[in-house]
């Protein structure tokens, strides 16, 4: 795998957008890895939470938009509470989801959910809030 940095990631528009939506300076992450080590969902993720920040710091938003991680994030805030530099990781994950959702992109199609009749209504509501515009 190879990634070419085309321009200063600080100047990347989509990185700027994520910073704007989340209100977090993603460049203050210094890669200690505490978010990933404590994340209850990390074992199901394709990109670890700390790597999300490394991708952002390198201006590689495409990888993140195609990754499962932001959608697997349960927004439990364990990472946010633990981050030594006080980053709200859950907000950054939300911002990445937002970037995708604002393109009118449905991560989940409710009609394709099996046994949706059986699901508790609150699960469906949560699903709409998180996975659809």
């Amino acid at each position: 795998m190879k990634y070419t940095i085309k321009k200063d990631p600080h100047e990347d528009e989509r990185v700027q957008k994520i910073i704007e939506i989340s209100g977090q300076n993603i460049f203050s992450c210094y890669q200690c890895g505490r978010c990933s080590s404590g994340c209850p969902m990390a074992e199901f993720m394709d990109v670890l939470p700390n790597q999300v920040f490394m991708f952002l710091q390198e201006g590689d938003v495409d990888t993140l938009l195609n990754a499962k991680t932001p959608w697997i994030c349960a927004a439990c805030f364990t990472c946010t509470v633990r981050c030594p530099v006080g980053l709200d990781l859950a907000a950054v994950m939300e911002a990445i989801r937002e970037l995708q959702l604002r393109k009118n992109y449905d991560y989940v199609d409710p009609y394709k959910v099996e046994d949706r009749e059986e699901l508790p209504p609150i699960a469906m509501v949560s699903n709409f809030r998180k996975f659809t515009p």
Partner: peptide, 11 residues
């Protein structure tokens, strides 16, 4: 290389 994301980096 970016050992944190595990890929070669060029600039």
């Amino acid at each position: 290389v970016d050992t944190l994301t595990g890929r070669i980096v060029e600039v």
